[in-house]
Every structure is written in C-alpha cells, then in structure tokens.
Simulated scan of single mutants.
Amino acid sequence: MTILPPEPNLDALRLQLARLRGERGWTYDELAARTGLSRRTLIEIEQGRTIGSLATWHALGHAFELPLGGLFSALCEGHAPPGRTP
C-alpha cells in the first residue's frame, strides 16, 4: 500500500510571500531589485499563476533573510508537517 503525502498548500506559500513583502513595505520593483528576479515573476507567483523554481525561492529567502525551511513551512499549512502528529 502506498501512502501519499498531503498536497502542499501552494496558496499559503504565495500568501506568505505577499505578507512578507507587505510587512517590509516593499514594492514589486524593490523586491525584484533585491532578488534579481523580474517584477513579472514576483507578481505571477503572488497571484498564483506560477509557483516559481527552487532558485526563485532561494533568492526570495535571501531577500527576506529567511532559510528555505522557514519559507516552505507554509506548504504544510492545514496538515501536520512530516514527523509530527496532527
């Protein structure tokens, strides 16, 4: 029997990006300058049209001074992370 992991909460991840950007008062242009990513990429991620690559999230983590684990913890919103009981 194969046990599949729960679906990642991609909405929570994009909303976390919007929250982090908003908390700092950064525009898309400012975040783009801090990450080297395009403004369009950032908008598309926040609007849920794309998820972005690992390299994209790595750049975002550096801009927000957060480890990837801190950013990606939002993916488990709504279910217990691996190794933890609900």
Rank of each mutant, 00 (worst) to 15 (best):
G25P: 14
G48Y: 10
H58I: 03
L20M: 08
P82E: 10
L60R: 03
G83C: 09
R39V: 15
G52F: 08
T50C: 08
R14N: 04
A59I: 06
G61L: 04
L66K: 10
H79A: 11
L13A: 04
Q47D: 14
I43H: 13
L17D: 03
G48C: 12
L15N: 06
M1F: 07
G69D: 07
E65F: 00
G61F: 02
T85L: 08
P82S: 07
A80W: 05
A59R: 15
P86D: 04
G25W: 14
S53F: 01
L42K: 11
R34D: 12
E7V: 00
T27M: 07
P81F: 04
T85E: 09
P82M: 08
R49C: 01
D11A: 00
E7C: 00
L37R: 15
W57S: 05
P82D: 08
F64T: 01
L20T: 06
R21F: 06
P81Q: 12
H62Q: 14
A12T: 04
P5I: 01
L75Q: 03
W57I: 10
P82G: 06
E46L: 11
L75T: 04
A74N: 07
T50E: 07
R49M: 07
N9K: 00
R34T: 09
T41K: 14
H58T: 14
P8C: 00
G83W: 05
F64I: 02
R40E: 13
L68H: 04
G70R: 06
A59S: 14
P8Q: 01
G48W: 08
E77S: 09
Q16I: 06
T2M: 03
G36M: 12
S53Y: 04
I51Y: 02
P82I: 03
L37K: 14
D29S: 14
G25R: 13
L66I: 08
G36V: 14
E23Q: 15
A63E: 03
L71Y: 02
R40I: 12
E46Q: 15
A80L: 10
G69I: 01
W57C: 05
L31D: 12
